Simulated scan of single mutants.
Amino acid sequence: MSVLIVIPARYASTRYPGKPLVELKGASGDARSLIRRSWEAASEASGVDRVVVATEDERIRDHARSFGAEVVMTSENCRNGTERCAEAVSALGATPEIVVNFQGDAPLTPAWFIEDLVAGLRTDPNADVATPVLRCSGRMRDDLLADRKAGRVGGTTAVFGHDGQALYFSKEVIPYAAGQYGPDDLSPVYHHVGVYAYRPDALNAYPGWPEGVLEKLEGLEQLRFLERGHKVLCVRVEARGRQFWELNNPEDVQRLEAMMKAMGIN
């Protein structure tokens, strides 16, 4: 097997319990669950051998199977999606070249984000993990800043070096920039897209490492790799006219539905 996609889906989310089963209405008014929309988005990527949903909850399992998804049951002890992916790969007995963690709350992730991500990891033998970053327009940056001002945990941002190596990820909007940017201007802020591609050795080692200090403070699982000295490659992706947002809070449902309507996504 070359590329395996795992979609971790946890029912007992701290900020939004039952989030994978929340329904989102598309442009036609058709309502589908978040986990179904995420599975459909992941299944559109080319060069992928297998897509599975990994969950600890029977409600999510039964629902995912009802629309044709392959499901792997994992324990309730997984602290984050990366640990759930590692457990799922072990349970499957799979030996993929690359494991992709497709976050179950990002149904607007285009297929080319995954394809570019896998290609990026393949071309950098020194990277253990790769993750996409999308340059923010002034409008997207303003939306991120508005979430923070309102006390909501919104999207994550990333800063990286000239070689693409991640320097830091944060739920604050980084880097700080004093200037103003028009709605369609490019800002210096990069929105981190919550998808990861791992080499199996790094993924297998991850659950055995203690939770990092920064990881715990920020609530960002990828920081554990940085705190352990592993290279995380930021792969710059292009929106190609697509809007992107994740479902982090109940307020995001309306935002995602408006985006799907504007893009004609049913």
Rank of each mutant, 00 (worst) to 15 (best):
I265L: 14
I98N: 14
M1H: 13
A86L: 03
A258F: 01
D105T: 05
L186G: 00
D62F: 15
K216C: 03
L186N: 03
L214W: 15
A258P: 01
W209P: 00
H191F: 14
R50I: 07
T157E: 08
P125G: 07
A262L: 10
N126T: 13
E58S: 14
G161S: 10
R152F: 11
L34P: 00
E251G: 13
R224M: 06
Q254T: 08
A130L: 01
E221F: 06
N204D: 08
R148H: 15
V195C: 15
R79L: 13
E97I: 07
A119N: 02
F113V: 13
V133I: 11
R152Q: 07
F67K: 03
L226K: 11
A197E: 11
V159L: 05
T74W: 02
E23D: 09
D143T: 08
S170F: 05
R59C: 10
A31Q: 06
V99D: 12
Y206C: 02
W39N: 01
R141P: 03
A158Y: 02
K25H: 11
L223W: 14
G138I: 12
E87C: 14
Q180D: 02
Q243P: 03
N266H: 02
K171G: 15
A27G: 03
A69H: 02
V71L: 14
S170P: 06
C85I: 06
D116P: 02
A12L: 09
R50D: 15
P107M: 12
E251D: 07
M73C: 09
N204G: 09
S46G: 15
A150S: 14
K149E: 08
H191Q: 15
R10V: 07
V235N: 04
V195N: 15
N248E: 08
L233F: 04
N204V: 07
D124C: 03
A146R: 15
R122M: 10
K261R: 12
C78P: 09
N80V: 03
G47P: 13
L186Q: 07
Q222A: 06
V213R: 08
A111Y: 06
L145T: 10
H230N: 06
N126M: 13
P8F: 10
T55L: 02
R37F: 07
C234S: 05
K261W: 01
S38Q: 05
I174P: 04
D143K: 12
R122Y: 12
A146S: 12
M259H: 11
A9P: 02
M73K: 08
